[in-house]
Structures are given as structure tokens and as C-alpha cells.
Nucleic acid binder design. Structure first.
Lengths: 221, 221
DNA sequence: TAGATTGTTAATCGATTAACAATC
DNA sequence: TAGATTGTTAATCGATTAACAATC
């Protein structure tokens, strides 16, 4: 009995794990593995088979009892579910070191992402090329968004201009923002923001390592 | 009654949130705010006051009934708890675009992190300077670790050499690895790894945006 | 003191795991 | 068919929230 169309709320955790399954499946298909069980795949990832099946169950049924999953089929269906059957066009704002690194990330292309515009406010940077794309004046962003359909906005600008950039992106029809600026962005309800706090992750790493070293917590209040 | 020294297990979530509290408190102290209640701080972060107090409760008591928290004191105590009262020395392996961007990240210094070595395998990159540090041959890493105390290893190399680098780091006494390579690293138990999967986060963003657009899940199995 | 807000326990909620019937 | 593994429900576990006594 196939699962009926639904509009339940999907936990963020589940969404994040689906992205992981997607990556593993892509690797498998690339390696020519054409079949996998929930047990094998979950072992590889480091979760339980129950959790993997439960996660997939949110979206329908993808396998075959007594057999497992056909990697290529599962990959294709997850890809479509995520929305990566359609290419995603992106703009990046903030062509500093991190912005340049992301703009130069070659494998975006084979993963379905197209960077179509880079913007900055620094006159010394505007007009230079990054990975073959000319850096435009950020004041052009608004009109660029009127002329082009953009799915994703990447903010690698500093904290202070980030909210203003998010406003322009939101108004310009971009409903997904990948934010590297250390500010909490306020955006319309229909816009999704994914924050990347690299420093938080480094701080957390230090804390984890110290907890381990101390053998738990040794509170010395 | 002060909490006794303990060695319970701290959930990763709690550890991650402590890093967030730390960032907010730093901002507050910088802004000259010297007092805050759990209600105010949690509102700002977007969590409940209960959760904030519960999280802190894992590590002791930090406030004053009827008053709240003194930001400077709380910041200092969390800093010490995390282990950032001591400076963290780091090496970075993989001086490509992303590695260079991270190596050039100025504010590591005021946050207590010192990058003391950069390594790469590419002869064209070895010998060049990034942010004032010479890029060394990755074959020097092992001996470098014998001569220097290193707290954190940052892997921004490609997937294939990542495990080998992790092995050298682990053997060289580094017990915290910040890994940007899209591989699951196998390390000794005393070593902590924090994986950064930037592409997963981008894929998750696309999925979230599409779920929102579709108004939930519309399964078309 | 009275008011406020913490520290901390208890209740609730949600997520993970276990189990097993369905079925390939 | 028999064996295997999914899909799916039920049980467990853990994390979040609520509540309130302690106390500044």
C-alpha cells in the first residue's frame, strides 16, 4: 500500500540525514554497486538500520522486501525528492577568501549546482574573475535577480552587510540562503536559511576534545 | 549546594549549544552588556530559557537567583570549561582554496587559535606564503609534530589522502581534528573529529526549500 | 521584605530503536 | 517454497519543556 501524499512536518534531522544517504548512494553508484540493504548502508554510515528505514518511510517506500534497495533507483528517487533533478542556480555575495574558495569549488557542477553570479562591494575586487566569472558590483544584485532566476544565495560577506543582502535576495525571489556570515538573518517565512558557523564548530571540537581528555566533566566551580 | 565533580556523558547537542552561548556572551561583553537573564539570552538565541538553564546545569551553577548572570563571569567560566583559557595551536593540511581561506581567517587569533603550520603536497604550493606562514611539504608533518605541541589538525586536503593525514596527526599527539575532507576518518578513541560536510549542508538547504515550496511532502511514488 | 530569576526536579514530548508481519 | 529484508507499528529512550522551591 503506497504512502499517500501528505504534508506532515519533516524533522530537520531527517532532512539532514537524507542528504547523507544521498551522498553515500552517489558514491555507491559511482563504484558500480547496484544493490544494498538497509543494514549494510546504515552500518557504513554509522546509524541503525531502523533509523534509515524510518527516515525513508517519511517519504514513501523505496525498497523491496527480502532484497533491499537498488542503489540507482533509490539514488534517483532521493535526488528527485530533494529537488536535485532540477539544476540549482546560485549567486554568491562576498568574494573574499572564503567566497572565492566556494566559488572555485569545481564539483558543484557535477552535483547539479550552477554558480551564475558573484558580487562584492570592494572596487578592487569588482571586475576581477573567479573561476571564469566576473565579480560584479553588489549594487547590481537587485537588477541581476530581476533578469535571472536564482534558487540559492550564498552569503560570504561580513556580518554587517549580511542582513541587507538577505533582504535583497528575499525580495528578488531567492528562497534559499546559504549563510556564512555570523549573524542570525531575519527573512520572510517562505525563505529557508542554512547557517554555517565554522567557528562554533571549531569551538565545539575543542570542548569535545577537552571533555574527553578530562574523562567526562570535572567541574571546579 | 554546588554540583559535585562528575563524569557523566554530555550530549553532543549540549556541547554544540555551549559554543553558541559562548559566541553570544562574547558579543555581549564586547558591547558592554554586563548582565543577562536566561530568558533574555535564550530569546536572543531562539531557544527556551529552560533549555539554556538545563544545559548550564550539566556543568554547575553560574548565575544568581533573582538576578540572572553576570556576562563577564559567565563568559569566563564557559571559556575555561571549553578549554579556551589556553591558546590552541593548529596545523592545516591542504593549502588549496578552502585551506587558504581558513588559514587567512584573521579572527582566529583573537579567538584563541594559533595556526602554526601549513602543509601541502603540491611542489608548486610548497614554499609559498599564506598569511605570513610558509607552506611546508606534507612529508615534514610528522617531524613537525615531534618538535611542536599541536592541539588541532585541520584537514582541507582532498578525500584520498585524508585518512593518511589523520593517521599522522593522531600518531603525532594531535587529539582534535577538524575535517573538511568528505571521508569518514577512522581515528583512535582519544582523538575527536569534527566533520564539516559543506555539500551536505547545501543539499539539505535545497531539500528544505523544496519541502517548504511543496507545502510539506508531496510524495509521487 | 517583596520580586525576580535561578537551580533542579517532574512531566511531556519527540526521536530512536526494537520487533515483527507483510511480501518479494 | 524458504530465506531475507522491507515497511510499519509498538516500545523505549532521551531530550525538551514546564513547574516550582530555593534564594539572591
Amino acid at each position: 500500500m503506497p504512502k499517500q501524499p501528505s504534508s506532515e512536518l519533516i524533522p530537520k534531522r531527517v532532512v539532514d540525514r537524507i542528504a547523507v544517504y544521498y551522498r553515500y548512494l552517489q558514491n555507491m553508484v559511482d563504484q558500480g554497486i547496484d544493490r544494498i540493504s538497509s543494514k549494510e548502508l546504515s552500518n557504513m554510515i554509522g546509524i541503525t538500520a531502523s533509523q534509515l528505514r524510518q527516515d525513508l518511510h517519511f517519504f514513501g517506500s523505496f525498497g523491496q522486501q527480502g532484497f533491499g534497495y537498488r542503489t540507482e533507483e533509490l539514488l534517483y528517487r532521493i535526488k528527485k525528492l530533494i529537488g536535485l533533478d532540477l539544476r540549482q542556480s546560485m549567486v554568491l555575495i562576498g568574494a573574499g577568501n572564503l567566497g572565492s574558495a566556494i566559488a572555485s569549488y569545481e564539483s558543484f557542477v557535477n552535483k547539479g549546482f550552477d554558480l551564475i553570479g558573484i558580487f562584492d562591494s570592494n572596487p578592487e575586487v569588482i571586475g576581477t574573475a573567479i573561476n571564469g566569472l566576473l565579480v560584479q558590483d553588489v549594487r547590481e544584485l537587485e537588477s541581476f535577480l530581476q533578469r535571472n532566476t536564482v534558487n540559492i544565495g550564498i552569503i560570504t560577506a561580513p556580518a554587517s552587510p549580511a542582513q541587507g543582502i538577505a533582504d535583497i535576495l528575499s525580495a528578488g525571489g531567492v528562497n534559499a540562503i546559504w549563510n556564512y556570515a555570523p549573524v542570525k538573518l531575519i527573512v520572510p517565512k517562505h525563505v529557508t536559511v542554512e547557517h554555517i558557523h565554522l567557528t562554533d564548530s571549531l569551538v565545539s571540537l575543542v570542548f569535545q576534545a577537552n571533555i574527553k581528555k578530562r574523562g567526562g566533566i570535572s567541574e571546579n566551580s
